[in-house]
Design a protein around this nucleic acid. Sequence first.
RNA 1: GGACCGGUAGCUCAGCUGGAUAGAGCAGCUGCCUUCUAAGCAGCAGGUCAUUGGUUCGAAUCCAAUCCGGUUCACCA
Length: 592
Amino acid sequence: MSVVARIKEVTAEAINRLYSVDIQPNDVLVNATKPEFEGEYTVVLFAFVKQLKKSPDALGQELGEAILASNPGLFSSFNIIKGFLNLTISDSYWIPFLQDAYSKNNFGYGALTGQKVMVEYSSPNTNKPLHLGHLRNNFLGWSIAEILKATGNEVVKTCIVNDRGIHICKSMIAWQLFSEGATPKSTGTKGDHFVGDYYVKFNDAYKREVDELVAGGMDKETAEKEAPIMKATQQMLLDWEAGKPEVMELWRTMNGWVYKGFEETYQKIGSDFDKTYYESNTYLLGKDLVENGLAKGVFYQKEDGSVWIDLTADGLDEKLVRRKDGTSVYITQDIGLAEQKQKEFNASQSIYVVGDEQNYHFKVLKLICQKLQLPSADGIYHLSYGMVELPTGKMKSREGTVVDADDLVQEMINIAKQKTEELGKVKDFTESELAELYETIGLGALKFFLLRVDPKKKMVFNPEESIDFHGFTGPFIQYTHARIKSILRKTGEPGNNVSFHMPLLPLEKELLVLLETFPAVIADAASEHDPSKLAIYVFNLAKAFNSFYTEHSIAHAETPEKKELRLLLAGLTARVIKSGMQVLGIRVPERM
RNA sequence: GGACCGGUAGCUCAGCUGGAUAGAGCAGCUGCCUUCUAAGCAGCAGGUCAUUGGUUCGAAUCCAAUCCGGUUCACCA
């Protein structure tokens, strides 16, 4: 049990015993003590003052004495300032904690819950390569999956690939018109970029055709419908749905190029999936559920034959679930896929990592699933994240301000290389060791930058700030880890079987307090679905270690006993940094 | 227009289930490498927590209104 949980428990117990009331541990507010006061944790007394009819000081005095007397191994002293009961945790608590935590190889990880959780993330379109926004999605999805694993859940990572539809046909038409048979291989282009280029070519040609028609006297709206390239694209979509062989062949070929490109990117950034769904297989799902819903009276049919659900009573709107021509809309297949996932995996929770522009969509999705009484309905959770913007504003593909994922990753790696060479600390590394280090640092900087902010909030990606390797960054934390490992290489690993008698110094205690909260931070990040909590924590830990490191020598500590203690402290800090970063998807180097 | 989200230091962000004098990083300014990696440390400076009112022992945090910004409400995906 965590120190905070124990403080809540013993405080509630003491209040109940002293004043014959019924206070629950969770009613006790425990904060970290402000640095200017003595102690590590503080019980806020105001909440009880009125009920117990005591002055804060008197209550604090009685309470402090009581919990100190009944928990001599936990507290060493207390003081009361203006209604705050500051508690000093005893060294005889910290030392065994340190030894115990160090002896575990999975400190911080929770016990198995027996629960299964699905995490759907990444979910790209196959008509263009991944960009900066996808990176936030991928890093978030991968990390939340790891965090949920660390808290004892079985996790199934899935991806739904949007591999069909009008946008794919645009790239296909453009390739037919303009490629003269070119392929990724013949041009030496990565497959997803190759196909994306034709998507751009489509839009250029389309715009030209519309402009010409408008110049010829047609109004813009009609011109947009009548442009030959658009009509050809729509015909191709019909041909695809009809399964016309040459269209299917081209579709498979071009998607194949894209998948090869994506695979390369995923490999590089560390995304992986246990199960990949393709929309070409799932877009017809959910049709039976529409019938089902009609029979149940959840849906209703309008005179023209279209099918709807009325969500106005839930504060939403009416929502179409089947067109009058009998075809499905987007949400229908989502309902169907939710049901399919449930049948296939029977997870208790299903997380969708999708941008916040689809908040409404997921609200509707969950509501409809609930009204249809699908078993998976209550487990649907939309992990909504904000858009990534540039200092100049939003990324717009039409204006060419989209930051390409592959380019950005490569740029980060290049900068890592350049900075590493400037510092010249790893001149003895082999070529492959260097390549790995640059990738670790470059990707670490990028991932940390995108994960350190609350997912719910939109964020600004400032290219200059993101490539900074100082301060609140991935490389800062990686560097701290490398420093510790350097010490351990020179002094040897800590022994962990020594008894300690010297009092802990403030900076030693600060590290211990932080280390002790690691399990609670992971649990919090899991329940909040928020990796940034962990990112902030790991940064604070690294910062605390660096202060400690500057102030106190480990290898040349005052006594052998202190050296042993500090080795343990440093060793545990390195492990926590490593596992904390690991669940963020960031590797830490032994040297840098 | 309805719904939802946001507004905290020059910039990027923490803090938001109410608790002590609102915190980091970057940028700016001072110091610190013959001792375990200076991608570091210590310090200075920087704030009307959008505005107004309310709730109370106490409000950046809760409530209401207002202002500003964003997203969304397709027989698109």
